[in-house]
């Protein structure tokens, strides 16, 4: 646990000094939310459904932008080689990377949710929306961190990342969009099954990724 904390700390320090990911992800999420307004009607009738769809598309894209590069950067700088030489197992490296990626996505969500609520006049600042945002972010960050490592070891990284993440993260997309829509519509009780599905998804895939991560890193 101590090691995981060190790994997370390392990523946060790197980000604080270089400011590579967070700013870009944040601006990208905002511009996606604004651009989607021109693609769908996010203000008229049924805006609860299209609004939550737009919100999650923005998070998925922004998350992918950051996640996709998070391990490729380490590989290019030789940090990954250093980490594999350290006395830490692959699972800890995965957890460290997952937590720092998750923190970036959460910051993006914390900043964009009030903006989203203001722009589209939707009740996006409820505790349940934050809970769904967290559990959904954990879902696609978990798979995203694993796939980021796979893509970093391959050619055409930027292309590979969405091709891996989009089909396999479909339960997260459906779950988050449906749950958020139901909360926007005021159906809190109906959102719970989705929330449980998302929690189960997170637990399953974080566990599998933790186990198989050693096989990704070996050279």
């Amino acid at each position: 646990m101590q090691r995981v904390r060190m790994l997370v700390w390392k990523d946060l320090v790197v980000e604080a000094r270089g400011r590579e990911f967070l700013g870009a992800m944040l601006v990208f999420a905002l511009i996606t939310i604004v651009t989607l307004n021109f693609a769908f009607d996010l203000t008229g009738a049924g805006k609860e459904a299209s609004g939550s769809g737009g919100l999650w598309i923005a998070y998925l894209f922004a998350g992918m932008l950051g996640l996709g590069r998070s391990i490729a950067v380490e590989r290019d700088r030789g940090t990954l080689e250093g980490l594999t030489l350290c006395p830490v197992d692959g699972g800890s490296i995965f957890l460290g990377k997952l937590i720092s990626n998750l923190l970036f996505v959460l910051v993006v969500q914390l900043v964009t949710l009030p903006v989203f609520a203001a722009l589209y006049d939707l009740p996006a600042l409820r505790p349940m929306v934050f809970a769904i945002a967290f559990i959904g972010a954990l879902g696609f960050s978990g798979l995203g961190t694993l796939f980021s490592a796979l893509a970093a070891g391959s050619r055409s990284r930027e292309i590979l990342m969405p091709l891996l993440l989009f089909p396999l993260a479909i339960p997260v997309v459906i779950g988050c969009v449906r749950a958020t829509t139901l909360v926007f519509e005021g159906n809190l009780s109906e959102a719970w099954p989705w929330f449980n599905l998302l929690t189960a998804f997170d637990a399953i895939f974080v566990a599998i990724s933790y186990v198989v991560f050693d096989h990704v890193l070996e050279e």
């Binding site: 694993l146 070891g153 339960p171 449906r178 989705w194 599998i208 096989h215």
Partner: peptide, 25 residues
């Protein structure tokens, strides 16, 4: 082979979950 095996495991576990989520949807 290693990377494909990882995706093979993730995919096989994911397909039933995808089916469930699409069914609910």
């Amino acid at each position: 082979a290693r990377f494909a095996a990882i995706l093979g495991i993730i995919g096989a576990v994911d397909v039933p979950i995808i089916h469930l989520s699409v069914q609910w949807w």
